[in-house]
């Protein structure tokens, strides 16, 4: 029965959506707590033990809040943007292998599919930036679009190095190829480029220019409130999870690791990368838009190209 692709797809989607949502709530709580401690304060500790119910409480708050649509907004686009953002954020997970067999759809062009659907995220961002007829949203949306588009290029180029080493676009094959050596060692340039690009794609500090609360109030989500805001927020957060997973799968050996079951290893590594993301967020100020684009086009893309050349050369030499 599980061999029926339709059944497998539906069950996989349901399980994944549930798991990611649960992980999301936990991670947001953890991030607030962790950043709180980095900043020498407690973080949430009112709702439940250690504030563990904080996200539930916040969820209820966001659900019951008035859903305001600005008078001059384009209502249809304004409403569609969060739904689309939320849905698109889940799409790449279909091709993410959590272990050798735990993958919803083990497609041959897995990594290509992930890159393709995750680059769709720019569409709802532009929609959310343009539709409310608010200048802050517009500026935030434009920034987000500029960021996503210019950093997809170095991310994709960095992945090419991995693909060259693994000899496959299939995610499972890529992880299998890391049995002996994790790719971040032979691909150190590619790894660095990809980590920075992934940070930017997640739109978190120091690259949260699309939100930039000290400049653009709340950026491209300024006019959103209640559940719509929550969906945009969650979508952004799911991008962070995806970015961490990709870093682990492509460079940090995926589920490889001793003793523990493979899926646990993968999640542990992802968790570690998430913690790093949070740690950086609590530490650094925001870069400026022109600096960000300069880093992308003038440093990361040449570095990624160099990485491809070096990898190709090395493959030639080593046969």
């Amino acid at each position: 029965m599980m061999e029926n692709p339709l059944v497998k797809g539906i069950v996989g989607a349901a399980v994944l959506a549930a798991l990611i949502s649960a992980a999301l709530l936990f991670l947001i709580w953890l991030e607030r707590k962790f950043i709180g401690r980095l900043q020498h304060r407690y973080g949430p500790n009112r709702a439940g033990k250690f504030g563990i119910l904080q996200m539930v409480v916040d969820g209820i708050k966001l659900l019951t809040k008035e859903d305001i649509i600005p008078e001059k907004a384009d209502r249809a686009v304004f409403t569609a943007a969060p739904i689309l953002a939320f849905a698109i954020a889940f799409l790449p997970f279909a091709a993410i292998p959590f272990s050798e067999s735990l993958v919803v759809s083990n497609i041959n062009i897995g990594i290509l599919y992930i890159l393709a659907v995750s680059s769709l995220a720019v569409v709802p961002t532009i929609m959310a930036g343009w539709s409310p007829n608010n200048k802050y949203n517009l500026l935030g949306g434009m920034r987000a679009a500029a960021m996503m588009i210019s950093y997809e290029v170095p991310a994709a180029l960095a992945i090419i190095g991995v693909v060259m080493l693994a000899g496959s676009l299939n995610m499972v094959e890529i992880v299998k190829a890391q049995e002996k050596i994790w790719f971040f060692i032979p691909q150190i340039i590619g790894f660095s480029v990809f980590v920075v690009a992934a940070f930017v794609e997640t739109a978190r500090l120091p690259f949260d220019l699309s939100e930039a609360e000290s400049e653009l109030v709340q950026g491209w989500t300024t006019e959103y409130s209640g559940m719509k805001f929550a969906m945009l927020l969650f979508a952004e957060y799911i991008h962070s999870i995806l970015a961490s997973l990709l870093i682990v799968i492509l460079f940090l050996g995926g589920w490889h690791g001793p003793v523990l079951p493979p899926a646990v290893w993968l999640l542990l590594k992802t968790f570690a990368v998430m913690l790093l993301l949070m740690w950086v967020r609590a530490t650094v100020p925001r870069v400026r838009i022109n600096q960000l684009l300069n880093i992308g086009w003038k440093i990361l893309i040449p570095a990624a190209l160099l990485n491809i050349a070096l990898t190709g050369y090395a493959r030639l030499l080593l046969g």
């Binding site: 304060r41 500090l205 000290s214």
Partner: peptide, 14 residues
């Protein structure tokens, strides 16, 4: 000033 530059409250807490 840290807040203005987008530092997530850390400098201010310190």
């Amino acid at each position: 000033y840290g807040n203005d530059l987008g530092l997530a409250f850390t400098a201010m807490m310190y």
